[in-house]
Design a protein around this nucleic acid. Structure first.
Lengths: 204, 204
DNA sequence: GATGTAAAGTTTACATTGTAAACATTGTAC
DNA sequence: GTACAATGTTTACAATGTAAACTTTACATC
């Protein structure tokens, strides 16, 4: 039943690779990037400070893996949003936006890492999973076009517009340029996207 | 004529505070954040490794000052864009977007720092200069509304939408989701903003 | 079952970095 | 000209990333 590797007494951890990533995410969440040191991560996983080197070439490799995990979580979250609104392409687009912002606001340091230095680097695997997140939105846009809710035309560019807007808003939240409670978040995101959707709607 | 402080032989630098910030920006530009160490910054300014502590409480304070300088540069750049298109509010908005993206693409590490960890921290001065950047855009939006080019209504929210979109696009460039040459950048930004402006236009 | 080997973890060691403390030099006010 | 404040330097140390050598365990093969 339970396929998760057992603690197996000691020494061999069993699944240190993932344990380190999880420990890293927790640290990121609780204390920010500056607290994300290899030694603390190792400590949380209850291994010696050099153990991570059996699974990651260097700190940068761990950061990349943490970013990758973030994109996978984001993809799943967005896909959930799509699945919950199967009937309405418009609702799907709005829900994707809401969930994206929600993720970014609840995991600011993680999101920052995902789009920060590691992404600038050459890393095909990371670009791949990031692209997978984007594709969830792109598919929803295509779907909306087929349903006649959005203009035909460059779906990729439309998706980039929406993603940009939502991602930008998430970052701006940190700036508190848009100061309102989280209870109104859904309405705020909705309002912004509506503005954009009006410009992209078929009725024009 | 020349009011810049002289090197004054040695020992006292004359303007170490700004020299450190400039050195930091250069390092950021040439080698990325991970290379931005206090000791390297000090070295570039040709002072001993502990000299920065006479001007900055700690590394974080220097990073905040570098971020602040970035916002000031950004504000000036955007204001330039506005001034060049005094006659046309619409052109002003498009020009602001282009210049923003241009800044972000040519200084990715700097932009990342500006919106990264330092901004999450409590720092009123930094929030102030960030807000000043935003206000350039906000003023342009208000202006466009008065000229009858944009809907009346919540100008702050409109500005947030535009800023979000442009900022998001800048970040996405790193992802190469929108893969096109820089020569077409202007057109791309223009196209995206046009989509949004359509939704915000008075004609609706 | 004994054994050899690869995988995974530990220990030791060291260079780099941030930062504190004590000391040195210079500009400036009286 | 002298005292003091501002600004640099030197020395010292703890935390961190990383390499190297060593240890323990799992597993395949006989």
């Amino acid at each position: 039943m339970d396929n998760t590797p057992q603690p197996s007494a000691s020494y061999h951890h069993g699944d240190l690779y993932n344990a380190l990533i999880e420990a890293g995410i927790t640290l990121l969440q609780e204390e920010g990037v500056s607290a994300l040191t290899l030694r603390k991560v190792a400590g949380r996983a209850k291994v010696s400070h050099a153990a991570p080197y059996r699974h990651f070439a260097d700190k940068h490799a761990l950061l990349a893996a943490i970013a990758q995990q973030g994109f996978q979580t984001l993809t799943a979250t967005m896909q959930d949003a799509v699945n919950k609104h199967g009937g309405s392409p418009r609702q799907q687009l709005l829900a994707i936006g809401e969930h994206y912002v929600q993720f970014g606001i609840t995991h600011p340091a993680h999101l920052n890492l995902m789009f920060g230095e590691v992404l600038q680097q050459e890393n095909d695997t990371l670009h791949e999973v990031a692209r997978a997140s984007f594709n969830v939105l792109l598919n929803a846009v295509t779907h909306a076009q087929q349903a006649g809710i959005l203009k035909a035309g460059n779906s990729r560019q439309m998706a980039v517009s929406m993603w940009s807007m939502v991602h930008g808003l998430t970052v701006l939240k940190g700036l508190r340029l848009a100061e309102q409670g989280d209870s109104e978040l859904k309405e705020y995101v909705g309002g912004m996207l509506e503005q954009l959707l009006e410009g992209l709607a078929t009725s024009n």
